[in-house]
Design a protein around this nucleic acid. Structure first.
Length: 633
RNA sequence: GGGGACGUAGUUCAGUUGGUUAGAACGCUGCCCUGUCACGGCAGAGGUCGCGAGUUCGAGUCUCGUCGUCCCCGCCA
């Protein structure tokens, strides 16, 4: 291969096949850099030594595919190329065959400047020839193989589940596949193999995994494609800790395959604590946590600043930003998106002028150093006065949630946990988004996101645990399943489900205090995967459906087969699913999933290379019994 | 569904307040060149300024619409 030859091969005869990466024509001497996925080797054609070959090589152009037979020759000391692995040798061509010519490509794999995304995607086969893409795809292969090997060694069976399955209205929008045999009916592509893997537990395959494509018809993001690959696994009789152990095991193996030595076990943090410390359920531990600096202000200070004293005052510290210009400081405010009456104080200096004692206390409490940026987020007193009443009822409901509170995280210095109230959540969440936006904006200055080469610092894993079972949907004015409806609630919170349908539309319902046996694995602020211990009893499952406002009839209509299966001796079980694409993306240091997926789709879910989706013929539609409505005018 | 950025040669980009013939680099074509490795030198070709309207004596530049790519919000159990 083109990346294989070394000084030790000097004198041997070699055959290389590959693409012409670059041609340097010095007249009677022509150099060709021959490329394949392993690397580049320099081939020499000398007019003096072999006029016929030299003549032939004059016709070579970029991206021609050629075969060269030649002698491996050690280069003179002055001609060694330090930049490539084969730089000590070159191949002296003795026979040259042009296997295929190439039209002039729209861009060259060896170009230093990257073509724009549209061109790259249309000519994906050329883009994929680039070294960076070859690296990413190889990395993906190695990671997947390491995971497969690890899980297989741990006694997991890789079992396939159907792609053509049943539409379930829960969760994301389904991709539908029409049935020809039964016109008017549709299969759905799986959003995940969730129910199948649970059925496999009921079927006695007590350790299952699959590296499997999933499909969700939702709008795309840099880290979201409509089809993506999950590492899906499920096991019988596990405690959550057992699932975590397996995940930590295969991630350690996967990262090792990528040359990164990560440390397990990962730290753990309760959902409430994550919100309180980071304002988000997937904290990026590389950045400093919040500091609640409410106590640093005297009560009259808070009044003067129109801050609600009943809500936290969050100091967001962004390290090593340096002195900000007037414009830079003005730019902070538009980055802040207030939720529920949260307000921002972006000018810490002004706070310092007005309240020197408070500012000094804040600087001390946050561990502020020279050049650090401090921005405060607090509740405004206007909205606060009307909210303090509801915040009362909020803390009342949380009293019951106190038992068995979240596990202590790695860097908590917080008082005994209460549950976060919706008003507090608004402050935390606003501050959390600002924290990330600021860190992103000043990434070039604090360099926290820059890889150090030390895997323990570069890859900050975290388990977030004890998620709430239900989420309040402000739009629909109802509670929804936060994870999915097959997640088991905490044993102690079971009683709170009793109220059922009546409390479904009450934002202060006890449903808000039900904790789930659900957990997320987070890496550098990205949610890698999500899992839970499942409900294994039909009666509990029915209660959850009822709590979600589903009648028994509705539940049976949607999940009847599953509810029935639960009644035939279902073992306790649980599992998790991780996004393979995201893992590889982070390992590759890529900004977008498109860099680690060979044939990705654009933001409008189009494949620019094959030009999909397309309309289909009238005949195809007819056969499927489908009529397409004309596009709206 | 909403917000933002971008769209000029094959590619990456520049293009001043609206003003003569729209530029550079790389790539491409031809010629020269025996130690290059982002080779070098000379010459040359290459443009519907995404598309469509409008304002104007005059539009790459201003306005509106439209299409495409990217990012974000909503959405993603």
């Amino acid at each position: 291969m083109c990346g294989a030859l070394r000084a030790s091969d000097a004198g041997k005869k070699a055959v290389l096949m590959g693409w012409v990466n670059r041609r340097r024509d010095l007249g009677n001497l022509i150099f060709v850099d021959l490329r394949d996925r392993t690397g580049v080797t320099q081939v020499v054609m000398n007019a003096e030594r072999d006029p016929a070959i030299h003549k032939k090589s004059e016709a070579l152009r970029n991206e021609y595919v050629i075969a060269v037979i030649g002698m491996v020759k050690l280069r003179d000391a002055g001609n060694v190329n330090q930049h490539i692995s084969t730089g000590e040798v070159e191949l002296v061509a003795e026979e040259l065959r042009i296997l295929n010519e190439s039209k002039l490509p729209p861009f060259l794999p060896g170009d230093t400047a990257l073509a724009n995304e549209e061109t790259r995607l249309k000519y994906r086969y050329i883009d994929l020839r680039r070294e960076a893409m070859q690296f990413n795809i190889e990395l993906r292969h190695k990671v997947a193989k390491a995971i497969r090997d690890y899980l297989s060694d741990q006694g997991f069976f890789e079992i396939e589940t159907p792609f053509m399955t049943r539409s379930t209205p829960e969760g994301a929008r389904d991709y539908l596949v029409p049935s020809r045999v039964q016109p008017g009916t549709f299969y759905a592509l799986p959003q995940s193999p969730q129910l199948f893997k649970q059925i496999l537990m009921i079927s006695g395959f007590d350790k299952y995994f699959q590296i499997v494509r999933c499909f969700r018809d939702e709008d795309l993001r840099a880290d979201r494609q409509p089809e993506f690959t999950q590492i899906d696994l499920e096991m019988s009789y596990p405690q959550p800790e057992r699932v975590w152990e397996v995940v930590e095991g295969f991630l350690t193996a996967a990262f090792a395959a990528a040359g990164c030595e990560i440390k397990a076990p990962f730290p753990r943090m309760g959902y409430d604590e994550a919100i309180r410390l980071y304002g988000i359920d997937k904290p990026d531990l590389r950045l400093p946590a919040f500091t609640d600096v409410r106590e640093c202000f005297a009560p009259e200070n808070l009044q003067e600043l129109a801050i609600n004293p009943n809500l936290p005052v969050i100091a967001v510290r962004t390290p090593k930003v340096g002195e900000l210009s007037r414009k830079e400081r003005d730019d902070i405010k538009p980055m802040f998106h207030s939720k529920g009456g949260a307000k921002i104080f972006e000018d810490f200096k002004r706070i310092g002028n007005k309240f020197p004692a408070a500012a000094a206390a804040i600087a001390k409490k946050t561990g502020m150093e020279e050049g650090d940026l401090i921005v405060l987020v607090a509740g405004s007193s206007q909205s606060g006065s009307s909210q303090s009443g509801s915040s009362q009822s909020g803390s009342a409901q949380t009293g019951s949630a106190q038992s068995g509170s979240a596990q202590a995280g790695p860097q908590t210095a917080l008082p005994k946990h209460r549950k976060v109230t919706p008003q507090e959540l608004a402050i935390y969440a606003s501050a959390g988004l600002l924290r990330l936006a600021l860190a992103q904006k000043y990434a070039e200055r604090h360099l926290i996101f820059k890889k150090t080469g030390d895997a323990a610092k570069d890859f900050r894993f975290l388990w977030v645990t004890n998620f709430p079972m239900f989420e309040w949907d402000e739009g629909d004015k109802r509670w929804n399943a936060a994870h999915h409806p097959f997640t088991s609630p905490h044993e102690e919170d079971m009683s709170k489900l009793e109220s059922g349908v009546e409390s479904l539309n009450d934002p202060h319902s006890a449903l808000g205090a039900v904790r789930a046996l659900a957990y997320d694995v987070v890496l550098n602020g990205t949610e890698l995967g999500s899992g839970s211990i499942r409900i294994h009893r039909q009666d509990v499952q029915s209660r959850i459906f009822r709590a979600l406002g589903m009648t028994d009839e509705e539940a049976r209509a949607r999940f009847g087969f599953f509810l029935e299966a639960l009644e035939y001796g279902t073992p306790p079980h649980g599992g998790i699913a991780l996004g393979l694409d995201r893992i590889v993306m982070i390992l590759a240091g890529a900004e977008s999933l498109r860099e680690v997926i060979p044939f990705p789709k654009t933001a409008r879910a189009v494949d620019l290379m094959v030009d999909a989706p397309t309309p289909v013929s009238e005949a195809q539609l007819k056969e499927l019994g489908i009529a397409v409505r004309k596009a709206r005018e």
